[in-house]
Amino acid sequence: MKEIKHILKQFEEAEAEEKMALATVVRVEGSSYRRMGARMLVSENGTWIGGISGGCLEGDALKRARMAILKGKASTITYDTTIDDDHQIGVGLGCNGVIDVLFKPINRADKGNPLEVLKSTQEGPRKISKLVKVTRSEDSDLLGELILFNGVESLQRLNEKLDTNQLAELIRELDKSKNIVINEELTLFVEVLPPAYHLVLLGHQYDLYPLLRQTLELGWDITVVAPKNKVSAIKGVQVITPDEFDQMQTDDYTAVVLMSHSLHTDKENLRKLTKKNVRYIGMLGPKVRSERIWRELEEEGDQIPEQLMPNIYAPVGLEIGANTPDEIALSILAEIKTVFSGKEVAHLRERSQPIHERDRPMTFK
């Protein structure tokens, strides 16, 4: 999400006459540093933002993107790092992966161009967006088309002979990005794009600021709940009062950390959270402190709902030997990412399976 925000910012700040192309990773087979959906925006002057790999393919991608700008046509290029061919870009990298990258010139006059579509996913309420990109088509004008899926009607321009009702149902059921092979003439990449993680911090002490700095670097949304005169203004950080927190909406991508350093305040905030949909609640301080809060709430008739207890992480953070506020912030953010990704905490060297789940394209029937 951070990459998308930076790309859109670059696009909006560029001169109107500056020509650009968007490179997008649309298929990965085997191992790759970046996964499907990684993007790189290239200007005709050779500057770019974002990335499609760890830096090893960007040089060639820059040339391909500028060629797309020059020709005014989209193209899909395959980078194969599994073969020993001196003429193959990526040979010798040892990544053992095959990557398809789609290069699409941006037509600013077309309000349906890929960057305008991406921009629309960032507007309005937080939501999961599903983007449909044409990655193979005999119709050169259709190649590279990006559609924001919002029902059967949004798919009509793909192919008049296509069963769009069946395709729409398939897209609705997707919970992760997938390639869909419609037929020999048409392949789609459906990207499931969730909203940015939203970190809500309830507290205003000095240990708040390392968390803010690191969260901003990750590109997550941030809200601080505290008296506004207690928190220094930081660009990109929303500050709301405790009264406003009562009306704040949460979702499956919201994490809340109680860090007021006041037992009474943390207890009252946890009481409020029992009435909200929160997937992650972190509590700063030793476990005995959290257990006391839970016990007092139960005695006061506000027992923590049984279904909410697995979502409470107390003490907050992973065990990484953290001591300083910066290290503690790192452990908290790492735990949130682990929980939201549905991963078990482990060393990568202990994995016998690939780090990333392998993409298996779907065949449309």
Rank of each mutant, 00 (worst) to 15 (best):
E3K: 09
K337F: 05
M309K: 14
E15R: 09
E306T: 14
G59I: 12
V231N: 02
H356V: 12
L258Y: 01
S32P: 01
M259E: 06
N159K: 12
A329T: 00
W48E: 04
G219I: 10
V231K: 04
V134I: 07
T47A: 12
E350D: 15
Y33W: 13
E350G: 07
V25L: 01
G203L: 01
T265R: 12
K343P: 10
A255F: 02
E13L: 11
S129K: 07
E291A: 09
A16E: 15
T274R: 07
T187K: 13
T47N: 14
S120H: 11
F340K: 03
E3P: 10
E185T: 11
S53Q: 01
E350V: 12
P114I: 08
G55P: 03
G282K: 01
Q247R: 13
G317A: 05
Y209V: 10
L318Q: 03
T241S: 15
R126W: 03
D139R: 14
S341K: 15
R172M: 13
S260M: 06
I312A: 06
L199Q: 00
S140V: 08
I52S: 00
Y253Q: 13
G54N: 09
D246F: 12
V181P: 08
N269H: 13
L216I: 11
P125N: 05
Q214P: 12
L118K: 00
G321E: 09
E298G: 08
Q156M: 14
R172K: 15
V91C: 11
P354R: 12
A233G: 10
V224G: 03
Q214F: 06
V181W: 09
A109Y: 12
L22P: 00
L211A: 10
T241H: 11
